[in-house]
Amino acid sequence: MSKMERNGAPKHDVALARRPPMPGKATILAMGKAFPSQLIPQECLVEGYFRDTKCQDLAIKEKLERLCKTTTVKTRYTVMSKEILEKYPELATEGSPTIKQRLEIANPAVLQMAMEASLACIEEWGRPVGDITHIVYVSSSEIRLPGGDLYLASQLGLRSDVGRIMLYFLGCYGGVTGLRVAKDIAENNPGSRVLLTTSETTILGFRPPSKARPYDLVGAALFGDGAAAVIVGTDPIPGKECPFMELNHAVQQFLPGTHNVIDGRLSEEGINFKLGRDLPAKIEENIEEFCKKLMEKAGLVEFNDLFWAVHPGGPAILNRLESTLKLRSEKLECSRRALMDYGNVSSNTIFYVMEYMREELKRKGGEEWGLALAFGPGITFEGILIRSL
């Protein structure tokens, strides 16, 4: 297994927030992230992918080259390596039943990344691990009993009575779902501190390219691996904790009749995905009403008066959102930057966006209110009205 690269958010001095948090409202107190050590520049992906899968189809190769350009991704991290393919050559063989082998790789890989991200987050937080009262673990990349939540809690040295919640197979909206769950826990358990960790790898979906499965090429051009962690709690302790974002109000909504637009199935070969071409259009048709539902909680009416932390599922979704809401181009800059630097890392990506947003707001100041948004299977919308502190 490749050694994971710990890449936590920079250490911040404990200081008073610019804006005090509202009493009893959940806040984000620290962040961390981690990645596999293997970084792949997008311009090197096609040759490596076709070499590893032994595909000779030039038409498929040309299509992947076009997709790699349109995704806007520049770099991605990946667990998959030459060493893994040498040990498990059947992963590159069409039709091979390899779910056992994939889980042998994925289960420890996501745990290792989750550990690194959690440790980086706890280090930034600056308090003992024994002060963590709850853990929320999110992953669409591992399958086992007990789940990664127990392994993570044990390896971090958390208390044996820590409250654990495991969120499996939510896909791209899982990070915001985890934030909503952590928010509810923190606000209903005064004094609690919730560690939310997400970890994802594309191992379960890796396979040789095929004309019969065009979405595999989209996945190869777009998705990456990594982990992220945040600590959530209410009423931060002055002098000990530095909140930087308040989770003010959360909403989840599914779009009736769209459950087949994003379709993922677990088989003997791993996870097979089908992505409907109408996904960006479905989001475009419903996003304005969804955002207004969140904004009305703070009496907000103008989209450009907010900052935007949007999960970058792909450039088409970001472009549709920007056009529909008539957002100024800079409003989605943090989302585009996260997509460019990491690709779509499923549930984790929203935290990479939020980290860029944190630094942007700290450097330039700016809007008090913003929205954190993610979209995934269902079609499910997850949104949180957030407040910069």
Rank of each mutant, 00 (worst) to 15 (best):
residue 59 A to N: 10
residue 60 I to H: 05
residue 63 K to F: 03
residue 63 K to D: 12
residue 64 L to W: 05
residue 65 E to S: 07
residue 67 L to F: 03
residue 68 C to A: 14
residue 69 K to Y: 03
residue 70 T to K: 14
residue 71 T to P: 04
residue 72 T to D: 07
residue 74 K to D: 09
residue 75 T to D: 13
residue 76 R to L: 09
residue 78 T to F: 13
residue 78 T to Q: 14
residue 79 V to G: 02
residue 80 M to H: 06
residue 80 M to S: 09
residue 82 K to S: 14
residue 83 E to C: 05
residue 83 E to F: 12
residue 83 E to Q: 14
residue 84 I to C: 06
residue 84 I to Q: 04
residue 86 E to G: 05
residue 87 K to F: 01
residue 87 K to I: 08
residue 87 K to G: 02
residue 88 Y to F: 12
residue 88 Y to E: 05
residue 92 A to W: 03
residue 92 A to S: 15
residue 93 T to C: 13
residue 93 T to W: 10
residue 94 E to M: 12
residue 102 R to D: 05
residue 102 R to N: 06
residue 104 E to L: 08
residue 105 I to K: 03
residue 106 A to W: 08
residue 109 A to V: 07
residue 109 A to M: 06
residue 109 A to I: 04
residue 110 V to T: 15
residue 110 V to E: 03
residue 111 L to E: 00
residue 111 L to Q: 11
residue 112 Q to S: 09
residue 113 M to G: 00
residue 114 A to Y: 00
residue 114 A to S: 11
residue 114 A to D: 01
residue 115 M to Y: 01
residue 115 M to V: 02
residue 117 A to D: 00
residue 117 A to S: 10
residue 118 S to K: 01
residue 121 C to F: 01
residue 121 C to H: 00
residue 122 I to V: 10
residue 123 E to Y: 04
residue 123 E to A: 12
residue 123 E to V: 03
residue 123 E to L: 08
residue 124 E to F: 00
residue 125 W to K: 07
residue 127 R to S: 10
residue 127 R to K: 13
residue 127 R to T: 08
residue 128 P to G: 08
residue 128 P to Y: 04
residue 131 D to C: 09
residue 131 D to I: 01
residue 131 D to H: 12
residue 132 I to P: 05
residue 132 I to G: 03
residue 133 T to F: 13
residue 135 I to G: 04
residue 136 V to C: 05
residue 138 V to Q: 05
residue 138 V to I: 13
residue 140 S to G: 08
residue 142 E to V: 04
residue 142 E to L: 04
residue 142 E to I: 05
residue 143 I to L: 14
residue 143 I to G: 02
residue 145 L to Y: 13
residue 147 G to L: 07
residue 147 G to M: 07
residue 147 G to R: 10
residue 148 G to R: 00
residue 148 G to D: 03
residue 148 G to N: 07
residue 149 D to S: 05
residue 153 A to Y: 02
residue 154 S to P: 06
residue 155 Q to Y: 07
residue 156 L to Y: 02
residue 156 L to P: 00
residue 158 L to M: 13
residue 158 L to A: 03
residue 159 R to W: 08
residue 159 R to F: 06
residue 160 S to H: 14
residue 163 G to E: 15
residue 166 M to T: 10
residue 167 L to G: 01
residue 167 L to I: 14
residue 167 L to S: 06
residue 170 L to F: 11
residue 171 G to I: 02
residue 172 C to G: 15
residue 172 C to F: 13
residue 172 C to A: 15
residue 173 Y to W: 11
residue 173 Y to P: 00
residue 174 G to V: 01
